[in-house]
Design a binder for these strands. Sequence first.
DNA 1: CATGAATTTTTTTTT
DNA 2: AAAATTCATG
Length: 664
Amino acid sequence: MRQLLARLNPEQRRAVTTTDGPLLVLAGAGTGKTRVITVRAAYLLDQGNPAESILAVTFTNKAAREMKARIVGLVGKHAAVGLTVGTFHAFCARLLRKHGAPIGVPPGFTICDASDQLAAHKAVLRDLHVPEATIHPRQLVAEVSLLKNSLVNPEAAGESAVDDRDHLVALAYRRYGEHLRRAGVLDFDDLLLRTLDLLREHEPTARNLTDRFRYLMVDEYQDTNGPQFEIVRRLAGERRNLCVVGDDDQSIYGWRGADVKNILGFERQFPGATVIRLETNYRSKEPILAAANKVIGNNPARHGKTLRAARGEGSPVRVFGVDDEEREARNVVTDIEGRKTTSPLKDMAVLFRAAAQSRALEAALRARAIPYRLVGGPSFFDRKEVRDVLAYLKLLANPTDEVSFLRIVNCPPRGIGKSTIDKVLAYATEHGLGAAAAFENSEIPAKAKAAAAELKATLARLGEKDPGPRLVNTIRALLDAIDYRVELVRCYADEQVREQRWNAVEEVVNFAENYVRRSRGPTLTEFLERLALTATDDEKDDDQKDGDALTLMTLHAAKGLEFPHVYLVGCEEGLLPHDKSVATDQVEEERRLMYVGITRAQDNLTITFAKSRAKFGRRAERMPSRFLYELKGEAPPKTWRAAGQKAPAERPTKKANGRRRSRR
DNA sequence: CATGAATTTTTTTTT
DNA sequence: AAAATTCATG
């Protein structure tokens, strides 16, 4: 332990050894933040604290896994047993599964992911007979979620509504909540909110938890939202052994309800808190750091840190303007090919603002046969056939899960079409029933009724009890019962496509096999929970990990990572900062995003912008990002303002589409 | 009710 | 340009 401490700088060491009372570690990019947290955990263990008393929370599964692995590396596998390291959502899900019953959370609840959430909101709108033209379901999801995360309940939302639209949102919010509750389903936000309810309303559990977790650590604290803050505050209790680590300059999740005030106001929330600043950057060469400092310096309201480069001089940041996104992709790829002779591909990353930007890059990489790894992107679990199968499984675990039910009720086709479903749904809301139950009594074609009854029987038979270790058999029996293979044959004429789709289904089975093998007491419920909460990564990138490959990802996904060579593409007005953010006055967050991007680079940073870019298939002129001028310390040219300002065009709504698009 | 064609929307970021 | 949704037809 002494050796470990000796390898830290004085500030880091102080952060590690300050174990009691509230502690805020302001850790600039690349200042050894993860190192501090992991060594701190090791230090706590070394001081004789039981592993069970330590809770470390992160935001992503990847971060959680990495943290756990590094702690194990420090103290050994044995000493780390019993340590709780996980994401907020995973931690909350486990808690609710175990202790949620007293506050009305059914132990068998299923978790609905983003697309289920969207489907549920659409169902609510349909139910309210509100045409989707009135309010876009996507926007509704975002607004309702933001309300939830701001701890505003439907009643309060209704009261503070000032126009029809607000009222509609409040109403839809209430209906959506009722819908989920009746179905025994929780969305991501509910995991946090219900946990908060649990801590507030169920004293015994709350005490139990505060007694157990004597030391709390929260990573990426700048990204916590209201409920997360409350959860942490309550868990810390009066003991207040709470260590939060973060960087206000890297707060990039405001749109998800994250509140920078949590980190900016920590000292006020926890009077007497120790504040430690980590300002020595061990990651980037000086020119890169200088660029980062210049850009972020334009943001007001910061905790204020000045990063010092420990690594000294290096090559300057390169900025290139190109004609269009194709050219941009080709140039970047050519540059990467050149670099490939001296550095492995895994030391390079291409970062961008929006996921869609990967298209052009992927095309160029394929053309040159350069292996790449796209992080984030559409997951394996988003494929239609996988989602279908999972919906069936969710129904086995939770027969009242209406979202899943509606998804699969006519897949494979059972003669239960749209009009039938509409009738059933109308009947269901009228009588306060679930959709599945409403099938029996509503007036619909006998054929459809019979089909529904058969489906119900099948599900009841397979879902009678949790299959536990026989999970794989159950999945196979299910696929058999619904003839899913046949369904694929029916849907896809192309042999190859069909095989691909079936492979995806087989992959779910494999996944289940792995899960059962690794888990001690496997259950279907837990299996589904894992899929919902750790969807993207895990096994998936294992295959691609062994080979040397370039990394492509969004700026959001890049946070916390570092690469020797970084390409930051699409640095244009409208993209970074994004039009939508400019329109809603959130340029500061975009600037932080830029800052995150710059500070990922260790040795070389290349920034590009295109003079024209295709958007929705239409080509448009682009201006270099304002951040590029900030980076160089120049004022933007006069013409920039005029061009930059015609961007917004918010609130299109009205259907006055008299103007037709000219073809091609 | 199911199917394929026509039309519309999507791209900001994610647990 | 692609995906999702709506429409028209069998």
